[in-house]
Simulated scan of single mutants.
Amino acid sequence: MAGLLANLRNTLIVSFILALIIVAGYGMHNAAWDQIFWQGVFRWLHTLAGILWIGLLYYFNFVQIRKMPEIPAELKPGVSKYIAPEALFWFRWAALATWVMGVLLAWNRGFLIEAFTLGAMDGFQVPQHTFIGLGMWLATIMFINVWAFIWPAQKIALGIVDGDADAKAAAGRKAMLFSRINTLLSVPMLVTMTMNQTIFG
């Protein structure tokens, strides 16, 4: 067992095998691999990717950004050359997966356009569409921030892309500010994602 748990890849493979067995159980219990079943699958994948994305967002903001100034200069390359690039890899791909699964979930539930128009397609008469649409727009802004601003700036700040000391400092500040925007938007976004399903079903 220790051999399995000592290897992250093997741990995840077994975890996904167990998860897929449970997913198949839901499918057999449902007696139809229908729209509701796929809604459950998309919700699971959306939540899984979202936990990874927002978890890393909070790691960067609650831990790494705050503690970097306290790390001795000779130790900082350990973070910037090894930890940060790996965390940013999972961060940006989890953001993409979360957004795609969220769009698929809204499409499967039949309110993608209504949500993206914040309920305008319904004359603003369906609050469920307005609230979930607000959350979807907040998440979309956060997703765009990751790929259009945070990741390009981090590539310069971390030296993945060439830049002098001033360019690296400016890029690091830009990445931090957009990461803080995402942190600011994450709490209200999570309100819509969690309460909408509870209040409106």
Rank of each mutant, 00 (worst) to 15 (best):
Q64L: 15
I65F: 13
L52D: 02
W99Q: 04
Q64Y: 11
F111L: 04
G102L: 03
I54G: 03
A97C: 07
L57K: 00
A97L: 13
R66K: 14
L52F: 02
M68L: 12
F62K: 09
I71V: 15
M101S: 15
N61H: 08
R109Q: 15
F111E: 05
I71M: 01
I65L: 15
G110S: 10
V103F: 03
W90H: 11
F89I: 14
A115F: 01
F111G: 08
G55E: 02
A87Y: 07
F62Y: 09
W90E: 05
G50D: 01
L105H: 04
L75H: 08
W53V: 01
W90S: 09
V103N: 05
P69R: 08
L52H: 00
F91L: 02
F60W: 09
F116C: 07
I54P: 00
F60Y: 13
W90R: 10
A115T: 09
G55Q: 00
A87L: 13
A97H: 01
K81D: 10
K67C: 10
V63W: 09
N108L: 08
W53C: 02
Y59R: 00
Y58E: 10
R66F: 08
L52A: 15
E74L: 05
Y58L: 15
K76F: 01
P72W: 00
N61P: 09
L96N: 11
P77Y: 06
R109Y: 06
L75W: 03
A115G: 09
